[in-house]
């Protein structure tokens, strides 16, 4: 007796969310707060979603050539480290905590911030810098990563992200 074997299904690539766009506002310059936006941007790009990253205020540190490789992590004000808060203020603690976090991130094969942005760029992600932050910090286009497309103002950003899903980090 033979049983009928059906043809295998074919995965539905390219069919979900046609034209989906995601805009992520990165406003923090702490090492730990740089990653959520980068991880999600990278994941969205891998799913064929158009991604725009807008860097503003302290988030500028993520795309400024001078600072992007030197973001820091502090246990101060972060109860999730489960350390006595007083310890966070001890000299050298920020450097030590930063080192530990960097090692933990590297140990799971996740790149540092500049390399992560390289990958996001290579995957077709768009990087934008905030005009007000640039003026306030006296930073010009030449101080930023080369793959930052432009310094734009808030209205430009709102116009550009019409209909997009938005994340503020």
């Amino acid at each position: 007796m033979t049983t009928e074997v059906a043809p295998a299904p074919v995965p539905k690539f390219d069919q979900g969310d046609v034209g989906r766009r995601l805009a992520i506002i990165c406003s923090k310059g702490n090492l730990d707060m740089a990653y959520p936006g980068l991880v999600l941007a990278n994941a969205a790009l891998g799913e064929g979603v158009e991604v725009h990253l807008f860097f503003t205020f302290w988030g500028f540190d993520m795309i400024t050539k001078k600072t992007m490789a030197h973001l820091k992590f502090t246990p101060l004000g972060n109860t999730a480290t489960h350390m006595p808060q007083g310890l966070g203020g001890i000299p050298g603690m920020t450097a030590m905590a930063t080192n530990m976090l960097r090692k933990q991130i590297a140990s799971i094969g996740v790149p540092d911030v500049p390399e992560f942005l390289d990958q996001i760029s290579a995957s077709g992600g768009h990087l934008w810098a905030c005009r007000m932050s640039a003026d306030m910090m006296h930073v010009g286009k030449e101080d930023l990563r080369d793959d930052v497309e432009a310094i734009i103002n808030a209205s430009d950003f709102i116009e550009m992200t019409a209909g997009a899903q938005l994340l503020f980090i």
Binding site: F13, D14, E47, A122, S123, G124
Partner: peptide, 12 residues
């Protein structure tokens, strides 16, 4: 290179 992968196997 990542860029090439997106060209060879578009979108996903």
């Amino acid at each position: 290179p990542t860029k090439d992968l997106f060209t060879l196997f578009p979108k996903q």
